[in-house]
């Protein structure tokens, strides 16, 4: 969703006339060719990439003054908690809301480069389809299997240490940065075949998702719930999922996930814990068979 707003604050005189050059990799629809387009917006202090995109959308003209369709992108909260606005900014995956223009220009003074995430199918321009990411949460049953939502008294007692361990994992906003930066997570973009029904296609797509790497975010969620006193009641089911095709074994320990995570979630710790749990589980299963 977009709702551009021009800033009320006016730029100081020193920045008058200064322009920010932006290069955007656009794509009109899935399956179409992508193309670069240049834009320029007047500089203002304290801008972030979202406000740059808002001005571009409002202007709907390229740098050479040609009228163009407004650039499309995802965003919502603008304070880095909703996980919507992930994109490749100057080649690196990050949230557009917390990407401050001043810092980007320090990084790369000539221009800001925006591209859609490369591991998910492009819907349009900077909007990608992250359904596979959410499917990952289903695969590892990332939930507490409660009986129902009626009153059964409080939840289990939890020590502050356990809470402090769990809380960071629980701040994962499903932005997909960890997946974008992961060299082991590769794009899955099935194309609907001629004559294929929507349901058949959705099923085939899901099958493909389910064979692909589940990703750091889902591994971490599995560990979050396997540590919860009630959540762990289906720990085996999660480990089963984590040791099936596309499971924890796909991790190559590049550790980019933890390096790019905007919430600094200890993803590699979760991965290693999942590795340990999978080891124990696999051995146990071998003997329990």
């Amino acid at each position: 969703m977009i709702a551009p707003n021009h800033a009320a604050d006016s730029a100081p005189a020193a920045d008058e006339g200064r322009e920010i050059r932006v290069r955007i990799l656009r794509q009109d629809a899935p399956g179409q060719e992508s193309y670069w387009e240049r834009h320029a917006v007047p500089y203002e202090p304290n801008m972030n990439v979202i406000s740059v995109l808002q001005r571009i959308a409002a202007g709907a003209r390229s740098a050479d003054g040609r009228p163009v369709a407004p650039v499309t992108w995802d965003c919502n909260c603008l304070e880095e908690v909703c996980g919507s606005c992930t994109m490749l900014i100057n080649g690196r995956t990050r949230m557009a809301c917390s990407a401050l223009v001043d810092r980007l220009l320090e990084e790369q003074p000539e221009e800001i480069e925006l591209r859609p995430m490369s591991k998910f199918p492009v819907v349009r321009d900077l909007v990608v389809d992250r359904r596979r990411l959410f499917r990952g949460l289903e695969r590892v049953k990332a939930w507490v299997p409660v009986d129902d939502s009626y009153d059964h008294g409080p939840g289990p007692r939890i020590s502050p240490e356990e809470q402090e361990d769990a809380y960071p994992l629980s701040t994962c906003m499903s932005c997909g940065c960890c997946l974008e930066a992961c060299p082991q997570y590769t794009k899955i973009e099935p194309v609907r075949r001629e004559g294929e029904t929507g349901e058949a296609f959705a099923e085939r797509r899901q099958g493909a998702f389910d064979r692909g790497f589940v990703g750091a975010h889902a591994v971490s969620q599995a560990m979050l719930f396997n540590a919860h006193p009630t959540g762990k009641m289906i720990a085996d089911e999660r480990l089963e999922a984590l040791t099936s095709a596309g499971g924890i074994q796909m991790c190559g320990n590049a550790q980019n996930c933890v390096a790019v995570c905007p919430k600094a979630i200890p993803l590699t710790r979760s991965i290693a814990r999942a590795g340990r749990a999978a080891t124990v589980w696999a051995i146990k299963r071998l003997f329990d068979r």
């Binding site: 080649g91 060299p183 082991q184 590049a254 550790q255 390096a259």
Partner: peptide, 24 residues
């Protein structure tokens, strides 16, 4: 097989861990 399935990206993410992954 594993190498064929991966997409090294050390150019975009020149972090120590990633360099080691690529070197591996």
């Amino acid at each position: 097989m594993i190498i064929a399935g991966g997409l090294p990206n050390v150019g975009s993410y020149p972090y120590a861990g990633n360099i080691r992954y690529t070197l591996q």
